[in-house]
Amino acid sequence: MVASFGPVALAAVIATVFGLLPLAISALLAPRRPNVVKNSPYECGVETIGPTNVQFKSHFYLYALIFVIFDVEALFLFPWAVTYTQLGLYALIEVGIFIGLLLVGYAYAWRKGALEWV
């Protein structure tokens, strides 16, 4: 475990340094002269109207819900794929049933228009 995932943790630390380094150099070299106009939101020169964090389409959440279902499905399929050649026909039928059940929900979501971007 440590032998194979230790380098990943090490890489995460080094990659963070790798990202901070140019920011540090930039902090030394770059000018810092903020003013009111420069720091205003960039919206094609037009003043922003109203608050920024407004409500947005509920469709984003619908997609997120369907995503969770299918991502978990994909996750379950990985161990199946690795051991598939040893399991044979039995595994094929079982996964067929598993995906079939999900496809019912998929068809329902499709029918209800959850996949439609209106």
């Binding site: 150099i25 070299l29 000018p31 002269r33 420069k38 720091n39 205003s40």
Partner: peptide, 12 residues
């Protein structure tokens, strides 16, 4: 060039 540019942090 990018190293020498100011990093603007907007007010909001």
């Amino acid at each position: 060039k990018l190293l020498m540019k100011e990093i603007i942090i907007p007010t909001q």
